[in-house]
Deep mutational scan, measured.
Amino acid sequence: QTVQFNGLEYHFPNPEEAEKFAKKVAKELGGEVRVKDGRWQID
Rank of each mutant, 00 (worst) to 15 (best):
K24V: 07
I42K: 02
E32R: 11
E16D: 10
Q41L: 13
N6T: 02
K24A: 12
P15F: 11
W40K: 00
E16W: 12
K27L: 13
E17F: 05
Q41P: 03
E17L: 10
I42M: 02
G7W: 04
T2P: 01
D43P: 03
V25A: 06
P15A: 13
Q41H: 14
A18R: 01
L29D: 05
D43H: 14
F12W: 02
R39Y: 14
Q4F: 15
K23M: 12
N6W: 08
E28R: 07
A22S: 03
K24W: 12
E9L: 14
A26W: 05
G7T: 04
E19I: 06
W40M: 02
E16C: 11
P13L: 11
G7Q: 05
V3Q: 01
K36V: 15
G31M: 14
E28W: 12
E16R: 08
L29E: 05
P13M: 09
W40R: 00
K36E: 14
G7F: 04
D43A: 12
T2C: 13
D37M: 03
R34Y: 15
E9W: 10
V33G: 02
D43Y: 15
D37R: 02
D43Q: 12
K20I: 11
K36G: 05
D37G: 06
A18V: 01
R34W: 14
Q1I: 11
G30K: 07
K24P: 01
L29M: 10
K20W: 10
F21T: 01
T2A: 06
N14R: 05
D37I: 00
L8R: 14
N6K: 08
E32H: 12
R39F: 12
F5I: 13
E19W: 09
F21Q: 01
Q1K: 10
E32L: 09
T2I: 15
G31F: 13
E9Q: 08
P13S: 13
Q4G: 06
I42A: 03
H11Y: 13
G30W: 04
E9D: 09
G31E: 06
Y10P: 00
D43R: 08
V3C: 07
V33H: 04
G38N: 08
P15W: 12
E28D: 09
L8Q: 13
K27I: 10
K24E: 12
Q4P: 02
V35A: 06
E16N: 07
E28A: 10
L8Y: 13
P13W: 08
V25Q: 06
V35K: 07
V33Q: 02
R34I: 14
F12L: 03
Q41E: 13
R39Q: 10
A26L: 06
V25E: 03
L8D: 07
E16S: 09
R34E: 07
F21D: 01
D37S: 03
N6F: 08
K24L: 11
E32W: 10
E17Q: 08
A18I: 01
V3G: 01
L29I: 13
A22W: 04
A26H: 05
V25G: 01
L8G: 06
F5L: 11
K36T: 12
K36S: 11
A18S: 01
G31C: 15
N6Y: 07
H11T: 09
F12N: 00
V25P: 02
A26R: 03
G31D: 04
K24H: 11
E32V: 14
W40P: 04
F21C: 14
W40L: 07
F5H: 08
P13H: 10
L8S: 08
E16F: 11
Q1T: 14
Y10H: 05
P15T: 09
Y10T: 03
L8N: 11
G7Y: 04
Q4K: 09
F5W: 12
R34M: 11
D43C: 15
D37L: 03
K20R: 13
G30C: 05
A22Q: 02
E9H: 08
A18T: 00
D37T: 01
K23G: 05
K27F: 11
E17I: 06
D43F: 15
G30I: 03
R39H: 12
N6M: 12
R39K: 15
G38I: 01
N6R: 09
Q1F: 15
I42S: 02
D37Q: 04
P13N: 13
K20V: 09
H11K: 08
V25T: 06
H11M: 07
F21E: 02
P13G: 09
G30L: 05
V33K: 01
E19Y: 11
E28S: 07
E9A: 07
E9I: 15
A26G: 05
E19K: 06
D37N: 10
E9F: 13
F21V: 01
Y10W: 12
W40Q: 02
F5Y: 11
A18F: 02
A26Q: 06
K24G: 08
L8V: 13
K36P: 04
E32Y: 13
Y10M: 07
A18K: 01
T2V: 15
R34L: 11
G38F: 02
G7K: 04
P13T: 13
L29G: 05
V35E: 10
K23F: 12
K27A: 13
F21G: 01
P13Q: 11
V3T: 00
K20P: 01
K27Q: 11
V25C: 10
E32C: 15
K36Q: 13
L8E: 10
L29S: 12
G30R: 06
N14K: 03
D37P: 02
F12R: 00
Y10F: 13
K27T: 10
K36H: 12
K20N: 10
P15K: 11
E16A: 11
G38A: 03
D43E: 13
A26S: 06
E19H: 07
Q4I: 15
F5K: 01
G7P: 00
N6C: 15
K23Q: 11
V35S: 06
A22Y: 03
F5T: 03
R39D: 05
V3F: 06
D37C: 10
N6A: 09
L8K: 14
R34S: 14
Q41A: 06
N6H: 11
L29H: 12
I42H: 03
Q1P: 09
P15S: 12
G30Q: 06
R39C: 13
K20L: 12
E32G: 06
N14T: 14
K23R: 14
K23T: 10
